[in-house]
C-alpha cells in the first residue's frame, strides 16, 4: 500500500505540541510581568518533579511517599559543593543528579522485599528521616536555617550569571522539560518501560516472563530520583539558599497529587496536573484566607469528576471503564 497523505497525517499529529511549545517559548517575551514568569518557573520545577515521580508511581506502579528526599539531596549536594568547593552550576547539576540517583536507589532496597502499602510507608519514613536529619545536622546543613550564598548558574561559555531575574531560569527549565519529555517517551516505549508496565500490572507474571524485578525497580527509583536531583539543583541555584522546610512531606504529597490528578503514567496528563495544582493557588489568591480551603475542595472535586486523572493512561482508562461496567480487573 502506497503511503498517502503522510505529511498531512504527521502535520496533524505535531501541530498541537508545536503550537504549545512555541507559545511556551514566547510567553516571557509577551508577558513581561516578572511575578508571572517567576510563578511559571516554580510550576516548571514542579513539572520536572512530577515527570520524575511519574516514572516511579505511574510507569512502575510503586507508591512513593518520600519523593521530597531525592529532591532535597539534589539541592543540598549542589549547595554544599558550591559553597565549599565552588563547583559551578553545570558540573554541579550532573553531580547532584547523580547523588540523588544513588540516594534514591537506596529506597529500592526495601522495595525488593516489601510490597504495596508497606513499601509506601517505608518511603514515607525514609523521607521524614532525611528532612529531620537536614534539620539537625547543624554543622553540615546549617540546621533549620539552611545554607546561604549559593551561586546562581552561568551560561556555558559566556560566563554571564543568571542572577535573580526569572527570565533565564524560565528558558532553562522549559528546555529541560522538553528534553525530559522526549527522553521519557523513548524510555516508556523501550524494553525497560514495558518491563515497568508489566511489573505494575502483575509482578508475579512479569517475573515469570523473565523480567528481572530487582533491576526494573532499581532503575525506576534511579531514573525518578535522577530527575528529582536535577530539579533540586536548579531550585537551589535559583533560590540561592536551601532550608529543610522546602522538602517536607507536603512537597512529596503535592507532587504525588499532580501525578495522580493528571493521570498516572500519561506524560501529557502529568504535565497538565502539575500546571493545574501549581497555578491554582495563584488563581485563588483573590480569596485570601479561603485560598487553601478552596484548593482542598478543588482537589476533591477534580478527583471525583475524573477518577482516572485528567488524561488517564490508555490501559488505565480501559480498566476503569471496565470496572464501571462491573467487570473485575
Amino acid at each position: 500500500m502506497p503511503k498517502k497523505n503522510t505529511f498531512l497525517f504527521e502535520w496533524k499529529k505535531y501541530a498541537l505540541p508545536a503550537v504549545l511549545i512555541l507559545a511556551a517559548f514566547l510567553f516571557p517575551l509577551i508577558n513581561r510581568n516578572a511575578y508571572h514568569i517567576d510563578v511559571m518557573v516554580t510550576a516548571g520545577l514542579f513539572i520536572i518533579l512530577a515527570l520524575g515521580l511519574n516514572v516511579i508511581v505511574g510507569f512502575a506502579g510503586i507508591l512513593h511517599l518520600g519523593y521530597a528526599a531525592p529532591f532535597a539531596v539534589g539541592a543540598y549536594t549542589y549547595a554544599l559543593l558550591n559553597i565549599h568547593w565552588h563547583v559551578p552550576f553545570w558540573p554541579g547539576l550532573v553531580l547532584s543528579a547523580l547523588a540523588a540517583t544513588g540516594f534514591g536507589m537506596l529506597f529500592a532496597i526495601p522495595a525488593l522485599r516489601l510490597g504495596g502499602d508497606y513499601l509506601a510507608i517505608v518511603t514515607l519514613g525514609a523521607g521524614e528521616i532525611v528532612r529531620i536529619a537536614l534539620n539537625n545536622l547543624d554543622e553540615i546543613t546549617g540546621g533549620p536555617n539552611g545554607l546561604l550564598g549559593i551561586d546562581h548558574p552561568d551560561l556555558f561559555f559566556a560566563g554571564t550569571e543568571f542572577g535573580v531575574k526569572s527570565g533565564p531560569y524560565y528558558f532553562l527549565v522549559l528546555s529541560l522539560i522538553l528534553v525530559l519529555i522526549f527522553l521519557l517517551r523513548r524510555v516508556e516505549a523501550s524494553p525497560l518501560g514495558r518491563a515497568w508496565v508489566a511489573m505494575r500490572e502483575d509482578e508475579l507474571a512479569a517475573s515469570c516472563m523473565g523480567i528481572n524485578l530487582m533491576s526494573a525497580k532499581l532503575s525506576a527509583f534511579g531514573l525518578g530520583s535522577f530527575i528529582a536531583g536535577i530539579a533540586g539543583c536548579i531550585f537551589a541555584a535559583k533560590q540561592g539558599t536551601v532550608s529543610p522546610d522546602s522538602f517536607d512531606f507536603v512537597i512529596s504529597v503535592m507532587v504525588l497529587a499532580m501525578v495522580v490528578l493528571g493521570g498516572l503514567g500519561n506524560i501529557s496528563g502529568v504535565i497538565l496536573g502539575a500546571l493545574a495544582l501549581s497555578l491554582l493557588p495563584e488563581f485563588l489568591r483573590g480569596f485570601d484566607a479561603y485560598r487553601m480551603l478552596l484548593f482542598g475542595a478543588a482537589m476533591i472535586a477534580m478527583m471525583l469528576l475524573r477518577p482516572q486523572g485528567i488524561l488517564g493512561e490508555k490501559r488505565h482508562r480501559e480498566e476503569y471503564a471496565g470496572a464501571a461496567r462491573g467487570e473485575k480487573a
Binding site: A257, F295, G296, A298
Partner: peptide
C-alpha cells in the same frame, strides 16, 4: 488524593 484534599 481526595484524602489529601480533605486534609487541606
Amino acid at each position: 488524593i481526595t484524602a489529601i484534599g480533605v486534609s487541606f
